[in-house]
Design a protein around this nucleic acid. Sequence first.
DNA 1: ACCTGAACACCGTTCAAGT
DNA 2: ACCTGAACACCGTTCAAGT
Lengths: 216, 216
Amino acid sequence: MKGKDAKGEKARTHLSREDVLDAAARLVKRDGPRSLTMRGLAAELDTAVTSIYWHVGNRESLLDALVERTLADLGEIRPVGRTPARRVVSVARTLRRRLLDRPHLVAMVHERGLTERMFLPAQRSLVHEVHEAGLRGARAADAVRAVQVLVVGHVLVERNRERAPAQRPGEDELWTATTAERDAALARALAAPLDPEALFTTSVTALVTGLLGPGN
Amino acid sequence: MKGKDAKGEKARTHLSREDVLDAAARLVKRDGPRSLTMRGLAAELDTAVTSIYWHVGNRESLLDALVERTLADLGEIRPVGRTPARRVVSVARTLRRRLLDRPHLVAMVHERGLTERMFLPAQRSLVHEVHEAGLRGARAADAVRAVQVLVVGHVLVERNRERAPAQRPGEDELWTATTAERDAALARALAAPLDPEALFTTSVTALVTGLLGPGN
DNA sequence: ACCTGAACACCGTTCAAGT
DNA sequence: ACCTGAACACCGTTCAAGT
């Protein structure tokens, strides 16, 4: 089996740092960082555990390197739409999509307190659009940041909702017309499973309306 | 040392399940769940590791029990304010305060996908208020959930910002008047450290305005 | 019913030794 | 410069044995 790993990839003369990062990224994307063990990674690479240490130092540095890669991967975002408000919403939606593509890695970026840096590409676009909408100074900065936190908040919540066990007691048992202000449609809506994409659109649209709206 | 633990608490004849949970909750609140080890907990309780297993099964069940406790601890929330919008904002702020009080435990609730359940006490109040504001059916349910996700999103982001290392490159180096739409005040605001409480208030107010506002 | 120590299968990491 | 196996100090967990 020497020279060929479990995935049947090309033979390798030397193990490189890139090889280690590639394999680690693949495993993390599939099963999350928690189940990435140095021994398991070594097996995947068909090498000795200690070789990995030569290339990446230790487990924490390895994960840090993956986070750096993720940050580098998140490129610019081009706003689309006819009004600044629509363009802000479009940036938020694009960003959400990209983050949901790599939920584990986003969580790792978040854990390392680098959420702000992750948003830099989007931030430039958002700054431009809120300025375009007439916001200035601290008010513009607040608007940009409010959108950022909304996006990352939704992504974090959504990611964990996916793998949530059945809720006990289920929301369907909790809300009946009598407990929900005698509003049968409301009770039904509260009992129904949540549609994350729709909720996100509702939230970000309402937020942007509030931030850019005439009241401000 | 038998019969008196490291904190000098009262002697114990029998170790109880409650004793285990109390000690575990204290340690988790201080250092987070990651640094809670069964052996460390046993030392804290001045008992054998294996005794703990008799009372709580295993580490995962122990953490589950702490999460259950946290959920039970989050009580009702009384809305205050003269308009429905203000009362919704007040519920959100109170909720945020309570969650920030136990950040590690909230994160654990979240990891277990029980965020929805955590919100139940607040949900009743929110449902009442948005109904009061004239929202009905699915639209009311969306509004309630949008506020929920905003709150938990902010708490999660805020918690991790606290222990964030210095950002590289710092936002102060990134934003100058020329890059920030030639708006010196905006550049300064973007470079300044974020005030989480202020940003939260701005966000939730804008969101509620957008959700309850005349446009809808 | 409750507690114990020994033992097992894992972990990340270090290090001296190889080529 | 790169790789190796042995060894160390940790984990969570099981289990037979004690009282």
